[in-house]
Design a protein around this nucleic acid. Structure first.
Lengths: 203, 203, 203, 203
DNA sequence: ATTTAAACGAGACGGTACGTCGCGTCTTTGT
DNA sequence: ACAAAGACGCGACGTACCGTCTCGTTTAAAT
């Protein structure tokens, strides 16, 4: 998610100014340790040491381990450039592989994934990263419908989620070698050709 | 995973016999608490209390929380009945929805899923539950190939994993309402019609 | 203390006879480990292992660690031969140095000493070893009085206890090199020359 | 043992200051429970509860039960006032009866005594309490020698240890009614009159 | 020979205390 | 004001040893 563009004009307060670089350092260190150790084994003290700051500062700013991790992951997620290759297949490949995709978290490996399971973190994650991801995908889908590549009642998100799910399953559940791009393209192609339709909600 | 058919005739050992019922009780309680609380908040003492045994016994048998949970999940997984509906689509729907599927762990909800993220547990899980699941699926695929429903070089597991991944993504990552069966069938149908092919390994 | 001379004619019971050698072995091993490790670090399992028997047997016979240790110490104590050198000084030196003295437990070092502090053991000890020791000393004293070496109201036990106390203090409290016999003799000589008198009990 | 007279001017450190009162409370409670229960039955949690602090703090400060007890005993020992009655007999009586004597630990009963037998504690004890006690006695002896009450080669410590040993024996080993002061004086008098001589070390 | 009574061996189990670890709070000094 | 330093509280984890219980196994006397 995009960080606030204008961080609030906010009158310069009294006293010592907030060390902005410190905040970046802490989040960055958190991401590193998180991907290296996983949520449970990540230690606040260790983060503090690596970021050359005190535990106190971390707690003052984020309140708890869970919130720190959530913030770190959100900070690691970046809005990608707008995608528009002209066809849906390439759009989706790009979307699921770009830095804004959970699939492509080459930078923050198991991170977001693992985080999903700490209830404290999951909520925040869904509201920020996942929502942004789905919203971005909606645009691609809408264009594809406009181009006639997909019928109007196609369940675009199901297509996206099947691709993401496949990637996540291979990477974190079965821990296979991963997902060859060729396979991803074949799966996406099949789903675009015979897209699932939106299911009307029950009574 | 198939339990040993003949649980070993095994001559009665010397000392006090292992309390088998106790073992069952512990694993069962563990599953309950695990699904109710999640891995982190599950407490050994609480399990011991609920199973009416001592903490010591649990540690003697499984050595650590992680291993206990792994054992509990493995014990909760049951080989489903052989599936053979006559066509691949129905076979796969059944396979991913049956009690032997991670997707369908209605009984032990987030359990296996969450467990995937405790490295200590994940390994065991992959070796038992997941492997059994994939092996079972291979049979379905092979029959489909034999029937001519799939080409010989079709990547059957990719199809399976896409379906599973979609289900898991919806259930545990995005926490949408879930995955309507109709959508699952549409996705599977599309993938069976234009199956991904096995990707040859690089040089 | 002297073991019962005739251990009861006791009709040969039915079942398997008690393994007497085993009992000896256990007590002996207990003494060894006790002196090597002290009461706290002495482990029943370790005794069982060294005595090549099972924990169960130990508990069946002695009921608890404390009682085992008490029994072991009592068994290690032997009535010495009657002492009668003809003069009190030599009698006492012999008495406090012989195998029947706590002081001279060269064989079972810190043993009896340490045991004194486990309340469970102390009582038994006092009733057996210490009482026997004092009683034996009373005879020496009485003879000395008869010979005119000591006045009738001399507090013989105080003399004995001062010597024993000095030895114990040096050995277990201050852990000095020990107590040279020459010093012991000088102390005893002084006390025999000007013996403490029995103090009448208060009102 | 003399506490440092000036407990280090020590600039006030950065963080939260050590709660000194807490430390006192913990040691004090430890002494109480120790004398009431003995070393083995003393429980850290119970100490923590009575001192209104957490187990963690105790372990952070002393590291183990043994070290806590050692510290507690050392803290309970106080340098007595200088003793100088003008004659050795009274000096020694005072010395062995004062609050600075193990013998007179009316305040901390079996405590120091029992502690002697926990190897972990004993070392510390010898280095602090016992050493201080002997050193203090050396002064009394030296003065007695100067006054001509004792020959220069008299083994003053043997006299002291005989008196202490007698007291300890009566109190903790035989658990007699104790040691009447009159008896103590008679013993000391005898030993001063015919003092044991220092034994030259062997080759 | 078979039965029977007792001692023994093996080992699972219960219980309790110990010591450890990491999170999060709080208090004080420094900038 | 914010940051560093660090003591402290809390609660769960895992460990260790004591003592109990339940079996199977052996030995010798009694039938």
């Amino acid at each position: 998610m995009a960080a606030e563009l204008t961080p609030a004009p906010e009158k310069r307060r009294r006293g010592r100014p907030v060390d902005t670089a410190l905040g970046q350092r802490i989040l960055s260190v958190t991401l590193q340790q998180l991907s290296a150790l996983g949520y449970t084994k990540l230690e606040i003290e260790s983060v503090a040491a690596a970021a050359a700051c005190s535990k106190t500062t971390i707690y003052r700013r984020w309140g708890s381990k869970g919130q720190l991790v959530a913030a770190a992951i959100a900070s690691g997620y970046q809005d990608g450039p707008a995608i528009d290759t002209g066809n849906l297949l390439d759009d989706l490949v790009e979307h699921t592989s770009g830095g804004h995709s959970l699939l492509a978290l080459g930078n923050l490996p198991a991170v977001a994934w693992a985080a999903t399971f700490e209830p404290e973190v999951a909520g925040v994650l869904r509201e920020s990263v996942l929502k942004a991801q789905d919203t971005a995908a909606d645009a691609l889908i809408a264009r594809a419908v406009a181009r006639g590549e997909l019928p109007a009642d196609a369940d675009g998100r199901a297509i996206l989620h099947a691709a993401l799910g496949l990637g996540l399953y291979r990477r974190y559940v079965s821990e296979d070698e991963g997902l060859p791009e060729q396979t991803l393209r074949q799966v996406l192609a099949a789903l675009i050709e015979s897209p699932p339709r939106v299911v009307p909600a029950g009574p």
